[in-house]
Amino acid sequence: MDLTATTTIRKPASEVYAFWRDLRNLPAFMAHLEQVRTTGDRTSHWVAAAPFGKDVEWDAEIIDETPAEKVAWRSTGDADVPNAGTVQFVPAPDGVSTEVYVSLVYEIPGGAVGKAVAKYFGEEPHQQLDDDLRRLKQVLETGEVVRSDGAPWGKRARKEFPQRPAQPLSDAELEKGADA
C-alpha cells in the first residue's frame, strides 16, 4: 500500500526537518505509533500502537538524508509489516513556510496482522496520514495537539462522528483516558 500526503507548516525547513529527523518525535503526531527509540546514528526501533495489531515492532534504518531537505528510511530484518518512508521539506513560495511531502509504503502481509493493519487504515487509508500531518502542523505551529470536548484524546480520537458530546469531561472520564 502506497500513501502520500502533504501539508504546509509556517516554520523554516531546518526546524521542521530537525523535528522529524529526531524520530522519537513521530509518535507525538502519528496515530499508529506508540514509540520510536533511536538505537544508533541511523538505526531505530519502532513500536506500533494497539489498533495496528498487537506486538508489531520493527527495526528501521535511515537510508538517505539531507539536512533541511529530506529523510528516507526503511524497516530492516524480518519486520511483520515491512515498510519504508520518505519525507521531503520544500520552502514554500511565501518565504516563511515549509511544504512537507510524505510518502509511505507498507507491504501488508496475510494473516491476523495484515487484517489488523487493513482494518486500521479502513476505506480511506490516506485520511490517517492526512490527520497525522495536521497534528504535526499543530505541534510545530502551536506547541501541542489541540483537544476539544468532542475529541479530547488528540491522536487517539480516531472516530470522527459520532464522538463524545461537546461537553466537559467528568473526572472519571479524564482518569480513564483514551481507552475508555
Partner: peptide
C-alpha cells in the same frame, strides 16, 4: 498559522480537531 497571520481567524488551520 498562515490564516491567523493573514487575520483570517475563522479559517484558523489548527484549532479544529475534526478538520477531516
Amino acid at each position: 498559522c498562515a490564516a491567523c497571520a493573514a487575520e483570517l481567524y475563522s479559517c484558523c488551520e489548527n484549532t479544529n480537531p475534526n478538520a477531516g
